[in-house]
Design a protein around this nucleic acid. Structure first.
Length: 187
DNA sequence: TAAACGATTAGCT
DNA sequence: GCTAATCGTTTAT
C-alpha cells in the first residue's frame, strides 16, 4: 500500500460548488481510507439544495442531516434501511444542504484485502472503507482518515438518472465512469 | 408514545 | 428476477 499523497488531496474549495459539478469531477479520483486502502471512484450521485425532493436536505435541517449543511469537504454518513452506512461528501458553502453520495469504486492494488473486489453499491462502499457513524461531520483528512486524491486520471464521465429513490428520479444526477464494470447496475 | 418509512443488499428461485 | 430482512429517524397521535 502506498502512503497517502497529501499534496494531491483535493482542497476543500473543490467541494464548495454545485454538487452536480463536483460529482462529475469526482469520477476517476481516488478515495483513500487510512489503514484500509483505496479505490478509484466509478459512480456517484449528486443531491442538490433546491428542487431535489430526494435529498435529505429537502425538508430542512434535522439532527440527522445537519452535516449536509456543514462546511464543504466534510463527510455526511447516515444509516440506510437500518443496515447500511452510506458515505456522502458535503458540497456548497456552510449553511447550504448539498452532498455527493459515493455509490461505487474499483479497487486499487489490494489483491486480497477487503477492497479486492471493489464495491458496487453505496452500502458496500461504506462497508469496504470501514465507514462509521462517528465519522459524520468530520472533515476529509487525518480527522476522519478519509482522503480524496487527484492522480490526474480523467476518464470519460456519463450522466444518467438516479437509483433507489422514490422522488426526483428523473433528474440526471448519477454520474459514472464510461465502460467501468464497477457500477451498481449494468450500463 | 407509537407507527411508518427508506439515497439497500443478500439470498433464494 | 424477486422478496425478505432490518432498525434509526421522522412524523403523526
Amino acid at each position: 500500500m502506498t502512503p497517502v499523497a497529501l499534496e494531491r488531496c483535493v482542497p476543500a474549495d473543490f467541494f464548495a460548488r454545485a454538487a452536480d459539478q463536483v460529482a462529475s469531477e469526482l469520477i476517476g479520483k481516488v478515495l483513500w481510507a487510512n489503514g484500509i486502502g483505496g479505490g478509484r471512484l466509478t459512480e456517484v450521485e449528486a443531491y442538490l439544495p433546491e428542487g431535489d425532493p430526494a435529498s435529505h436536505a429537502a425538508r430542512g435541517v434535522t439532527p440527522r442531516n445537519a452535516a449536509m449543511f456543514g462546511p464543504p469537504g466534510h463527510i455526511y454518513v447516515f444509516l440506510s434501511y437500518g443496515v447500511h452506512l452510506l458515505l456522502n461528501l458535503v458540497c456548497e458553502r456552510q449553511g447550504v444542504g448539498s452532498a455527493v453520495l459515493v455509490r461505487a469504486f474499483e479497487p486499487l492494488d489490494t489483491p486480497s484485502g477487503p477492497l479486492g473486489t471493489g464495491a458496487r453499491g453505496p452500502g458496500l462502499v461504506g462497508r469496504a472503507l470501514g465507514v462509521r457513524l462517528d465519522m459524520n461531520g468530520a472533515p476529509l483528512g487525518p480527522t476522519s482518515g478519509l482522503y480524496v486524491i487527484d492522480d490526474g486520471n480523467r476518464p470519460k464521465v456519463m450522466a444518467t438518472t438516479r437509483i433507489g429513490i422514490s422522488q426526483g428520479q428523473h433528474l440526471p444526477l448519477r454520474y459514472y465512469m464510461a465502460g467501468s464494470r464497477f457500477v451498481s447496475r449494468p450500463i
